[in-house]
Each structure stands twice: as C-alpha cells, then as structure tokens.
Design a protein around this nucleic acid. Structure first.
Lengths: 231, 231
DNA sequence: TCTAAAATTTAGGTGCACGTAAATTCTTCT
DNA sequence: AGAAGAATTTACGTGCACCTAAATTTTAGA
C-alpha cells in the first residue's frame, strides 16, 4: 500500500505501464521486450530499470527480467486507469473515433490530475470498459481480469461476442470497424483454414454479414464464447 | 507566417507564453522578469533565451531584454488559446471552480493536440472569453486587446463592469467570488481613500451589495467604464 | 562624475533519459 | 560439452534544462 512519495517522471510512468502490460500478456518483462514496447534501445532500458529498482518500483534480476513491486503495480494501474478513462471520455464526449483516441490519451495520461480523471469518470457514469473493450481499473487499483479467447482459437460453430481489441494500431481499428465489428457484437465462426489461415465468421445484426478475417488479425480479436451451434 | 518546423519543448512553450504575457503587460521582457514569471534562476533564462533566439523564436539584445519574432508570437498565442480554451472547458464541462482551473490548464496546455483544442472549442460554441474574462485568441492567432482600467484607477461615481481578473492566485479568485464579483458584474464606485487606500463599491444585483476592496486587489480587477453617476 | 547597487551574463556543474560500441552472460544446438 | 548466436549489461557520450558562484555591464545616487 506504499505510495510513491515524489511524483513520477513521464518516462517512469511509461516504463511502469509498459512493464505492467507485458506482465499481463504473460511472463516476465525482459529488457528487450520493454525496449520494443517503448521504442528505445535496450541499454537505455537497463539503465532506467536500475533507477526504478532503486526507487522500489520494481525488482530486477539481472539477465532475467523485471517484476513490479506492489508500489510499482499501483502506479502502473493508475496510468492504465487514466489512459482508459481518457479514451472513453474522448470518444463519448468529444466525438473522437476509436481509432484515434490512443495517441491523444498517451500524451494526456501524464498531464491530467487525479481529480480530473475522477471528474471525467463521473461525467461518464463510471464506465467499466473503454471503447476498445478493455476493463478500466478502479481508483484503488483493482482490475477485472478478462477471460478472453482470441478469435483465432475459436472452433468452427462457436458463437461468440467480440469483447476487446488492442487500441494500438489505428489502421487495424478502422479495418475492424469496417467489418462491422466492435466490442459487444456477436458472431458465429463458420469456417477456419489450417496453417494460420483465415477465419470465416457470420456477424449478427439486422442483416447478418459474412466476413473473412486473416489469422494475424484474428489473434488480436478477443472474444467471449456464448455457445456452440450444432455442427 | 513561419511555423516552427520541429515541435517545441515544454520549456520552450512556457518561455514563449511568459514572454508574450510580459510584452502584453507592457514593455520589454527582461531576463529577471522572465525568471520571476517561470520561477527559475536568471542564469537559466539567459541560457534558454540564447537557444530560443538561435531557433528564431525571439530576438535578444544583451542586457536589454527579449522580443518575440512573428514566429515566436504565433507559438505563444497558440499556447494562450490552449490555456484559455482548457480553462473554459474545465469550468463549463467538468464542473471546476474558476479558482482551480489555472493549475490544471497549465499542465494540459502542453499535452493536448490542436485537434482536441478545436473539439473543445466547438463543444463550447467557440467562446471569446475564458472564465476569468480573458480574451481567447483565434486559431489563427488573433486576440482582442481589451481596453481595461484597473478598479483602483476608477473615480468615485463611476459605474463600471468587471471584465477580467488574473487567473494566477486561487485564493484571490475565491475571495473575489466571495465578494459577489465575477466578469460581467456591474458596480458603482462609492468612495476611495487616497494613499493607496481601499475602494468602496456598490455591486448591482437583486439586492445591491456594498463592499470595500483593498488597493492591491483593486489593481488586479480590470473593468470597463459604463458611465458616471452625477456626483 | 564616479561609485555602489542591481541586473545580466559567463563559467562550470548536475540529473535525467536517451544513444552507440564493446564486453559479458545466457541459451541452444551440434 | 563446447561453441555460436542471442540477449543483456557495462562503458562512455549526448542534449536539454536547470543550478550556483563569479565576472561583467548597466543604472542610479551622492
């Protein structure tokens, strides 16, 4: 329950958030993964990681990667909350498209005050998910851990609902939207090709729409299974 | 009409805005005035001013102060617009009090995109004044130059309207509000004491209110004269 | 006019967060 | 097991924006 006494630098906030995301996506956060995530050179990460571990925000086992301490995790979750509240606010209140909010939130998350985040959250009715379906941590740092399956792993006949899409790539988001998909939309898996091949889905709606989705994309579309049609 | 090619650093933006404000409040912006404004040491200003003048944002006559170039002025006015749109947005849309918006805007003005500023402006109906009565520059960098007189300089019998209050000091703003004063409120000057003494005013309203205002405060309350009562 | 005080600049130094090049350690494959 | 390759760290250097202390220039007062 320790809170960092001095306020953190922009870089620190970025590192903590990146490391948190890497931990969530499984396993330890290695130097090179952090470097990739933040688009900086690996030696820079080593240096920064040293400072962060001296500040008690994470623990570093040389050559083995890093792990957030409870303090570090709290700070990371604070950043995640800010980011997702901002994205939700920008889409809901300022008319941004879901493909363009990430970049704006990425800068604002370092500048807004806690008070402003909470005011925005209140104006939105304390939303639980951001526009991409990602769960928004509470102010005290609790997050739902979503039970998602990538579309790429659903069997033929599965009926599922799209729950979450990565907010990183605007082009990808525009494409996903153009298919008629967004969080909450249900569909049925009609066919799958082996060898990382495309997936055919029938998207529910007034007029069901058949779409074919490449394997790479399908790996980034996280779904909740609703049921299974009789084959 | 030159636009800076690389985007400016936070510090640069702060310097340009501060220098602009000093130029508006009259005369040249001297090293020490800039240092005071930004709460940094004078030698730091000298160094930064050198860099800014090499970037073509201002001109520096050693020992004589600095002056913004057209490019510098444009960048400064962009920051002023951002700040004032933000203040207006925060009060109007997020329920902030006029005493607390300055600090928040001070950080956000460096982080928001031009697009977001314009979206906020649109959501507000393109306001011309911020909550403290300061004129908001247009996106292309035009500002109204207000014809204000400090309350401290109004003669007895003058009927005037409060137009603008500095947004700097939250305590001052709370006090001004507690007197029943805010931009747009009319009043009559009932009495003045010499030797920088207090001013007595009768504030218009359902029930006119008599208030006494210290000289120092009265120097920061900028008014438009509406008329003059018969003595 | 000359000198003391004030303002400004120069000189030299700090921390942060990045970079490249080279050394080290870990991993994996034969 | 040993050696090649990958990952990581060490060593060293950069730019930015700040600092203090000392030198310089301007200004104002006797």
């Amino acid at each position: 329950m320790t809170s960092p006494r001095t306020q953190l630098s922009r870089s620190t906030e970025d590192y903590l958030k990146a490391i948190y995301q890497l931990e969530v996506r499984g396993g330890a956060a290695h130097t090179s993964a952090i470097a990739d995530e933040l688009a900086i050179a690996p030696p820079s990460v080593t240096g920064m990681v040293k400072r962060l571990s001296e500040s008690g925000l994470l623990e570093h086992t040389p050559y083995r990667g890093v792990q957030l301490t409870p303090t570090g995790r709290r700070a990371a979750l604070r950043m995640v909350r800010r980011h997702r509240i901002l994205e939700t606010y920008l889409t809901t209140k300022l008319g941004y498209g879901w493909d363009s909010v990430h970049e704006e939130a990425e800068r604002l998350e370092h500048a807004v005050s806690d008070e402003m985040v909470e005011r925005m959250a209140m104006a939105l009715g304390n939303p639980r998910y951001d526009p991409h379906g990602a769960p928004i941590p509470t102010p005290s740092g609790e997050v739902e851990i979503p039970e998602h399956v990538p579309l790429a792993e659903l069997p033929v006949g599965a009926v599922a609902e799209l729950r979450q899409v990565s907010d990183r790539d605007p082009e990808l988001l525009r494409f996903v939207a153009s298919l008629g998909l967004r969080p909450g939309v249900a569909f049925e898996v009609m066919a799958r090709q082996p060898f990382r091949g495309p997936v055919a889905v029938r998207i529910s709606g007034h007029v069901p729409r058949d779409q074919v989705i490449g394997y790479e994309l399908a790996r980034g579309l996280f779904c909740a299974v609703l049921g299974k049609e009789a084959g």
